[in-house]
């Protein structure tokens, strides 16, 4: 049913630390790997070894250069995936009911057996979170690894999304953002986590943690002790003699 639940019991989502992310794309690979073999149609590739390779991914890592007014530019690696919005426009536009938001945990999912592949949900999403699988003709999106997080066949430490489990720098966190005392909610509060494009009224659940403030170069150059060189001995005598000419 494409009516959004008025309220979800929990708000499961991701918190992504832009300070820690090194842009290694391990989350992209882990996501593709897991979602090739479990929930729904596998994420297909077209012409993967040819001249024009292309494929379906549920997670993409961008890299941006950010230029502050008064400091050097910063490179920020920026993973982008479904934000499991509270007011998800991708759900309400769906004509078949394939697209839905779960009342129990807030995860936005696609029932692929009911998806006609019209693509309207991908148009409605401002974040580019949905990609139509070119082989299956159905819409694919992040499931928050719904087939891992509740899977009691897996060891407990593996019951989190593949991207979170694999991240080598711990830049990705998974939890209930509806519970103010959860680890992810506290992280968001401490680090002033933010939502993407809040002006569009989608109320994303996922949060991003901003890069920490950089030191100014003049305040903390690592080379400072080495820059003030006073030569002694023979080098000092040469320095003085040559300095006269």
């Amino acid at each position: 049913m494409t009516c959004l639940p008025p309220k979800t019991d929990r708000k499961l989502g991701l918190v992504i630390d832009l300070d820690t992310c090194v842009g290694c794309h391990a989350c992209v690979t882990a996501c593709k790997g897991w979602n090739d073999q479990g929930y729904g149609a596998p994420l297909s590739d077209q012409d993967p070894y040819g001249a024009d390779p292309s494929g379906t991914f549920l997670n993409r890592v961008h890299s941006y250069a950010v230029q502050p007014d008064d400091n050097a530019a910063q490179i920020v690696n920026f993973p982008r995936s479904c934000l499991h919005c509270e007011d998800a426009p991708c759900v309400t536009v769906c004509p078949t009911g394939a697209s839905y938001k779960r009342a129990e945990d807030g995860i936005v999912l696609v029932n692929e057996d009911a998806c006609i592949g019209c693509g309207l949900c991908a148009w409605a999403c401002p974040y580019g979170a949905r990609e139509m699988d070119q082989a299956a003709g159905v819409m694919k999106k992040c499931t928050l690894c719904v087939d891992r997080i509740y899977n009691e066949e897996l060891p407990e430490e593996d019951r989190q999304p593949a991207c979170v489990r694999t991240c080598p720098t711990g830049a990705r966190h998974f939890g209930d953002l509806g519970d103010p005392d959860s680890a992810v909610s506290r992280l968001v509060a401490e680090r002033e986590g933010f939502a993407l494009m809040p002006e569009l009224g989608t109320k994303p659940v996922n949060r991003y943690l901003p890069p920490r403030k950089k030191d100014r170069p003049e305040e903390a150059s690592l080379l400072a002790p080495l820059l003030d060189i006073r030569a002694t001995g023979l080098a000092g005598w040469l320095d003085r003699v040559l300095g006269r000419f």
Partner: peptide, 29 residues
């Protein structure tokens, strides 16, 4: 700036694209 939320730091530009080939998003939108 609002799409990335990085406007609080400064002006945002693309340093590197997330993929070298095309994808559904680029072809469609």
């Amino acid at each position: 700036e609002t799409a990335t939320g990085l406007g609080r730091i400064g002006r945002v530009s693309v340093f590197e694209q997330p993929h070298t080939g095309g994808n559904y998003l680029m072809r469609e939108m």
